[in-house]
């Protein structure tokens, strides 16, 4: 058993609700999972399931009110700003929307240099590093002095990946990084993620609503539903032969790109839904 990179233990995240003595909203109700170095853990769920919140909790952007987030032996759930700053070279992020995650008024170079300035990297070295980063994500070096609006969605996401890589992190939280992209662009960006992982040994916490995307990239997969992890295991097993009824429903709801097989899958899903309804009715009657 290799040493764990990240160990999330019973994490609770609560958001206060406006109003006197209202119960806070629990976005995460005691979630546990772990990530090994160099591993991709996929986090699947529908909107409101808490998958994005878990990513933000690891990044220190969500209020953790219970449990522990242990990163290389240290609990990082309640760090102060200065300690958090020290972690910035360890844990990085790629957000979903490539249009709002890059400041529209800064050039690509300014965007990529930003994390380096925190580390007090000399200006000359920083510029070299920018070229190296652009090369790593497959963008030409003349991209450096352009503004984000001159790039397409896929290219912007490459820039966001380059920014995450700038400090050589060990863990990147990827929050739906390909959902806003076109099909063919999506495949290329996913391949880039894979290639970077194989080269640098970085680990990913890969948040997505798309089972197929998660299956493509993840070694292990966790399925979230209403703030809890309902299924957690090897990527292949969870995404092709799920055990939990919710995961089964999720799996069967995704249409297969083949008319005949989709017809079969539809029939299976409708039968499952009927069975579940019947079981619910019986449970209600009993």
């Amino acid at each position: 058993m290799t040493e764990l990179l990240l160990d999330v233990q019973n994490v609770v995240v609560e958001y206060p609700i406006k109003g006197f003595r209202k119960e806070p909203f629990q976005a995460l109700k005691g979630v546990s999972l772990d990530i090994r170095p160099g591993e991709t853990v996929g986090l699947v769920g529908e909107s409101g399931s808490g998958k994005t919140t878990l990513g933000r909790a690891v990044l220190g952007l969500a209020p953790v009110t219970g449990g522990q987030i242990v990163y290389r032996g240290q609990d990082i759930a309640h760090l102060g700003r200065r300690e958090r700053k020290a972690l910035s070279s360890e844990i990085q992020v790629v957000f979903q929307d490539p249009y709002t995650s890059l400041n529209p008024s800064l050039t690509i170079e300014q965007i990529l240099v930003e994390p380096l300035t925190v580390r007090k990297v000399a200006k000359k070295d920083a510029s070299k590093r920018v070229l190296d980063l652009l090369d790593q994500v497959g963008l030409p070096s003349n991209a450096a002095d352009r503004l984000p609006r001159e790039f397409s969605g896929g290219q912007r996401q490459r820039i966001a990946i380059a920014r995450a890589l700038a400090l050589d992190p060990r863990l990147i939280v990827c929050d739906e990084p390909v959902s806003a992209l076109d099909l063919s662009t999506q495949a290329r960006v996913l391949d880039l993620f894979k290639e970077i992982q194989e080269r640098t040994g970085v680990a990913y916490l890969f948040v997505s609503h798309d089972l197929a995307v998660v299956r493509h990239l993840s070694h292990r997969v966790a399925v979230m539903y209403h703030g809890e992890i309902v299924e957690w295991g090897a990527g292949d097993q969870v995404t092709s032969d799920p055990v939990h009824p919710y995961t089964q429903k999720l799996f069967l709801a995704a249409p297969v790109p083949d008319p005949d097989r989709q017809e079969q899958r539809r029939a299976v899903r409708q039968r499952l839904v009927l069975e579940q309804e019947r079981a619910d009715a019986q449970a209600g009657a009993a």
């Binding site: 290799t2 040493e3 990179l5 090994r36 170095p37 160099g38 591993e39 991709t40 050589d168 060990r170 099909l183 063919s184 999506q186 495949a187 996913l190 992982q197 640098t200 040994g201 970085v202 680990a203 798309d210 197929a212 995307v213 299956r215 493509h216 990239l217 993840s218 070694h219 292990r220 090897a234 990527g235 292949d236 995404t239 092709s240 995704a254 297969v256 790109p257 083949d258």
Partner: peptide, 27 residues
């Protein structure tokens, strides 16, 4: 480019993971 029905990534291969861990921890 469709990913449905594609190959799953599989478990983090032990040999690979050891190498990855080594690179990651000595970065």
């Amino acid at each position: 480019a469709i990913l449905e029905d594609g190959e799953a990534r599989g478990d983090l291969d032990e040999g690979n993971s050891a190498r990855a861990a080594a690179t990651a921890l000595t970065t």
